[in-house]
Simulated assay, not measured.
Amino acid sequence: MKYRFIDHTADIAFEVYGKNIEELLENAALAFYDAFVDASRVESKQEFKIEVVGEDCEILLYKWLNELLYLFDTRFFAAREVTVSAEEGGLLTAEGTLKGGRFTPEMVKVEPKAITMHKFKVERRGDGLKAFVVVDI
C-alpha cells in the first residue's frame, strides 16, 4: 500500500508509506494529487524539478508537500509521475522530478489551503517509513 486516506471532519488526512525516504516522498506526492485533482485527466506535457533540504524526515516531507502545494496554487500543476532521489549528510536533501501538466478547474476535487503540522509525523517502522499528514482545505 502506498497511501490511504483517513476520515477527518474538516480537512484531508492521509497516511503515506515507503520503504525509504525516496519512496515516502513519491507516495506523498501521489496522495496529495489524488486528494485534490483528477490527475488521470492531466496531460503529461510539463516537468518540474524540485529540491528540498531538511534536518530530518519530518521537515523534509513538510517542505516537499509545501513545494507541491506551491506548484498546485501558482502553476495549476498536477503530477502523474514522480521520482525522487535523496542523500543523507549533515542534512537530508531530496531532489524530485514531477511529470504531469496543467489542470483545469473542473478537474479539482477540493482546493488545498495549507499543509498543517497538526498530528504531522514520520515514524520508522520495521519495513520502512510511515507518515501522517493533514492538509487544510
Rank of each mutant, 00 (worst) to 15 (best):
K63C: 06
T97A: 13
T93N: 12
L71M: 03
F76C: 11
N27Y: 08
T97G: 07
I50Y: 12
L61Y: 02
L91H: 15
Y70D: 03
S44A: 14
A78W: 01
T74R: 13
F77E: 00
Y70S: 08
R80P: 07
T83P: 01
E15P: 02
I59G: 12
L91E: 15
R41T: 14
N20D: 15
A35W: 02
E23P: 04
E26T: 11
L69R: 06
L98K: 09
G18M: 08
L68G: 04
F77M: 01
K63Y: 12
L69H: 06
F48M: 06
G90C: 11
L92P: 15
E95G: 13
V16M: 10
T97V: 14
A29C: 04
E23T: 09
E55W: 07
T74I: 14
E81V: 14
E81T: 14
A28W: 01
V52P: 00
A29M: 03
L69P: 11
F32E: 00
V82D: 01
K99T: 14
D38K: 04
N27P: 06
A39H: 08
K45F: 01
L71S: 02
Y17N: 10
F48N: 04
N66P: 04
F36D: 00
L24R: 07
A39F: 09
K19Q: 12
L25T: 02
V52G: 00
F48R: 09
E26K: 13
I21T: 11
S44K: 14
E67R: 12
A35Q: 02
S85E: 14
K49I: 13
N66G: 01
K19L: 08
E67L: 04
L92K: 15
E88T: 14
C57R: 15
G54Y: 03
E22P: 00
A29Q: 03
E95T: 15
R75T: 06
C57I: 12
E47D: 05
E47P: 09
F76W: 08
L69Y: 01
L69S: 03
I50Q: 13
L69G: 04
A39Q: 05
A86D: 05
F72G: 05
T83N: 08
F72D: 03
E47C: 08
V52F: 01
F76S: 13
F72L: 03
E43L: 10
D38E: 06
E51P: 12
F36A: 06
W64P: 00
F72S: 04
E87N: 09
I50F: 09
E26H: 07
E26L: 06
L61A: 03
